[in-house]
Amino acid sequence: MFRLTPIRAAIAALVLAALAGWASFGGYLAREMVAEIAVLAILALALDLVAGFGGMVSLAHGAIMGVGAYGYALANQAGLPPWPAALVGMAAATLTGTAIGAVSARLTGVFFLMATLAFGQMIWALTFRADALGGDNGLGGIARPPLPFLDSGDPLVFALYALVLAAGCLAVCVAVLRSRFGQRFEAVHDNPDRAAALGIAPERIRAQGFAISSMIAGAAGVLAAQHMQFVSPELMVWTASGEVLVVLILGGIGSLSGAVIGAAGFVLLKYWAADWTDHWHLAIGALLIVVVLAGERGLSGLLEGRRDA
């Protein structure tokens, strides 16, 4: 069962604080990277909720994030101000996730994985071919949200805003897992037969968890659209879902703090390795293997273990 141990809370807080410091004192690239990390961290949190605590490894989360991004972009282009448009984006992602969850939640293991992959690819293909969505050119000219006394067009302001959103999503995930629903959600993963014998409907709980996770993935999509001020089907390619799974394994699945440290580690390693070689995936792959061999608990687990020892 989920426990926000002091070390986990400290890891998440320290990583977010370090990123805020780096954005404040770093240059333009640092601020852009921090915003990218925040988007990835939110998406990884959404995936951790279902994969780490519900045992549902989804390959649709990239597409669901994309639905959130497109929902925001379309609502904004239709004349809706950014904040209500953000709600539209999140609602679109939640509805999409609810539909995917309603079908997929009755499946487990590799069948669940394949079902979510199929849904994700369908969403990507529909978006890619839809002229109204800009096809493979995507949609541009997306507004950033107005912030009181601050200019969200300033990279530093936007990076800090993105980190605040990531912290907010982390708090939402903690609240969900600590709630009675969260307890049932984990119970259904732990022992579905016993949960059912207690009157808990496993499929319904799993579907509801998937919908909540999709709402958070939608928030990542909205933030991505605000960051890039542009959306394209590339957001929805299945490899985007695979990438966030790598982030989660790297950071530590089933801990929440792993999503934050994994996103930071992934983006930093990607940029660092890309300076040396075009084959930066090799560096990520090598690190992933080392982390998995070191105990499958990810960077977060390694830090926890070292502290416990």
């Binding site: 069962m1 984990e186 732990d190 022992n191 037969d193 016993r194 014998a197 009157g199």
Partner: peptide
């Protein structure tokens, strides 16, 4: 009826091999 709806209708179930939430206290 499904297992959960029978449980809500008042059927309690003990298992041949203990069936517990092992990740919890």
């Amino acid at each position: 009826d499904t297992v959960p709806s029978r449980a809500r209708a008042g059927i309690g179930r003990g298992f041949q091999q203990t069936s517990l939430f092992t990740g919890m206290t």
